[in-house]
Design a protein around this nucleic acid. Structure first.
Lengths: 191, 191
DNA sequence: GTGAGGCAACCAACTGGTTGGTAGCCCGAC
DNA sequence: GTCGGGCTACCAACCAGTTGGTTGCCTCAC
């Protein structure tokens, strides 16, 4: 029963759910401690503060946020569809990122910690342009942004319509096809 | 000096800034009352509650959210660019919509009040399909969602990169061109 | 083997400041 | 003089963060 690592993990898990649901300002540390079957004192021992806990949660999901799907420069439509499915399966990841955007980083890169985390992906797109897969007239960074933008069209942070698991499979399939076709035509070359 | 209407307007204005900056949970009613050079008692007299005030703010910006730019079925690329500019000029509108999405309506339509506010715009797209401007194979609702999704690629709610007014004009122009080209190729027909 | 000592994990109860919301009163115009 | 606009002072509930202490596990002398 006495296992600091497991307790820490339970706290992070509970904090993920709480922050994803209510954001930083709306999250309640008591709820997190209770949901994790622990207590606030331990929480503060591990993470220092409410903000520190959010940092830890975000760091844990960092890879899932920026690499929700593997990027293949030769198959950007497939990448977009994979992102659509990832956001559908894990809406909490998108919500966490969006809370961070709204409550922490109103402009610029979401992860503005000195390291340009998008650089490798931009390089992949640039390579795909050299290989004739992607329109070379476009800025590779813009291509990446646009593809992700299209994939987030029905995400839990969308303005118009957020997709949910309750919708018919046919609706999801229709969106996947429209998304793949749109990405293909928008940024890839005929080849 | 004694003008209930003007006071109400000042309160709404202050509330808009406060809610856009901090969301519902993060907003502070004292700050709103102070910023409006009024007081909480009046605020509660007008709007009943913090949530009621947010409702009023959202209702006031409703049109600006859903009709940030006029929709022309024959010029969807122009519509997308106009949206990009609108979001750049009025980030608070996008932020309000996103707070509402995150804190109030996790899935489905953002304005799920029985009325389908998107219907007229979907009809415009459907007409554009009949007129040969837009690919008729796509679902008109999906077309609208995708175009708005592309236009929000660099919005204050984006996951990767949020555009700001401090960026060079050339960067904005490059994005406008990429956006227009992408929309044109993605959903419009050759004609 | 065992039991005393040490220590990390654990926790209920508390604290001081904050927050949404309200009651009661003042003031100026007509 | 009264009525609508305006506002200060107040409150109960809440909330992030702390305290002081308990509990169970490991270890090592004997």
């Amino acid at each position: 029963m006495r296992d600091a690592g497991a307790t820490r993990r339970r706290l992070l898990e509970a904090a993920t759910a709480e922050f994803a649901a209510h954001g930083i300002a709306g999250a309640r540390v008591d709820r997190i401690a209770a949901a994790a079957r622990s207590n606030k004192a331990q929480m503060y021992g591990f993470f220092g503060s409410k903000d520190g806990l959010f940092d830890a949660v975000l760091a844990e999901h960092f890879e899932l946020i920026v690499d929700a799907a593997p990027l293949d420069g030769a198959d950007l439509p497939g990448y977009a569809v994979a992102l659509y499915d990832a956001y559908l399966a894990h809406p909490e990841v998108v919500r966490l990122a969006t809370w961070s955007r709204l409550e922490r980083h109103p402009v610029g890169d979401l992860f503005a910690d000195g390291v340009d985390h998008g650089a490798p992906k931009v390089a992949v797109v640039a390579a795909a342009q050299r290989d004739g897969h992607v329109d070379p007239a476009l800025d590779p960074g813009d291509v990446l942004s646009l593809v992700v933008g299209m994939a987030t069209t029905w995400s839990p942070a969308s303005i118009l319509l957020a997709a949910g698991p309750d919708e018919a499979a046919a609706v999801h399939d229709r969106r996947r096809e429209a998304l793949a076709a749109a990405v293909r035509r928008a940024v890839t070359t005929g080849s």
